[in-house]
């Protein structure tokens, strides 16, 4: 029955095609910006910290593609808006689980965005720019598993942050913490291996690196052999933890709705 929500949001995305085009245009512009930044950083250097520019190019391309996919789902501000307007309180009355429904609607719009924009465009980009990616079929499979785990972790965290709106009048600060963490600690812009040692340690103990850094690293072959399985295990643990926290926060939030009417 939840697939119905996916279908609906898929159709809605199809109706707002213009939004999809503008989003992919922005995504591609940022890809080029980071491409030139890394190109300039690498200028005159073969490898830095054992990573070649070609590998780095692969890293940011897959990172940008994943970010594009994540961006097609409901954003933090949308969740906050739904809490403020009481939409969520209304949906509590319906016979389904709200967070699961949100996940399935996200899947619908993401699927549309993926097949109409991200997949064709990035296929072309990968063929043209030829970054070094040494993917075996098995690695590809592990990358997909890792990317899906990353997506679910991001979903849980974003949802949790969004639900904080139930207790806060003004969410400015929460938002900024979230966006800062997701842009830096997730490794979406700069991979963790370029971090100063102590910051890398900090990042490793945060769930954000499981969102982009782990799948990206598998994709460009920086994670190999048993390390991949360790990383996947780490992701799974983070997902479990984030999921438990989300359920806990959601439980408290629904109590609040039931008692105070939202």
């Amino acid at each position: 029955m939840y697939w119905e929500f996916s279908r609906k949001s898929f159709q809605r995305s199809a109706a707002y095609r213009f939004d999809v085009w503008t989003r992919i245009a922005g995504n591609i512009m940022f890809l080029f910006m980071w491409g030139f930044i890394w190109y300039a950083l690498y200028y005159g250097k073969e490898t830095v910290g054992g990573v070649s520019f070609q590998a780095m190019l692969g890293y940011i391309m897959i990172s940008q593609a994943l970010q594009g996919i994540h961006g097609a789902g409901a954003q933090l501000w949308e969740i906050q808006e739904r809490v403020r307007t009481g939409d969520i309180a209304m949906e509590m009355l319906r016979p389904y689980d709200y967070t699961t429904r949100m996940l399935f609607s996200d899947l619908g719009s993401i699927f549309f965005y993926f097949i109409t924009a991200v997949l064709p465009l990035y296929t072309v980009l990968f063929l043209v720019l030829k970054p070094s990616v040494s993917l075996t079929l098995a690695q590809m499979g592990l990358f997909i598993v890792s990317a899906v785990l990353g997506f679910l972790i991001r979903f849980c965290i974003e949802m949790t942050f969004g639900l904080f709106t139930f207790w806060l009048i003004e969410t400015g600060g929460v938002e900024d913490v979230f966006y800062f963490s997701i842009s830096l600690f997730s490794g979406s812009l700069v991979p963790l291996w370029f971090f100063p040692g102590w910051l890398e340690q900090v990042a490793h103990y945060l769930p954000f690196q499981a969102i982009f850094f782990v799948p990206n690293s598998i994709f460009v072959g920086q994670l190999k052999g048993p390390d991949i399985f360790n990383a996947l295990l780490g992701q799974a643990i983070w997902l479990l933890l984030c999921f438990v926290i989300l359920r806990l926060v959601w439980h408290r939030a629904s109590m609040k709705i039931v008692i105070q009417g939202g």
Partner: peptide
């Protein structure tokens, strides 16, 4: 982010 970028 800029600082991290230039660190290495």
């Amino acid at each position: 982010t800029m600082w991290v970028l230039l660190y290495s």
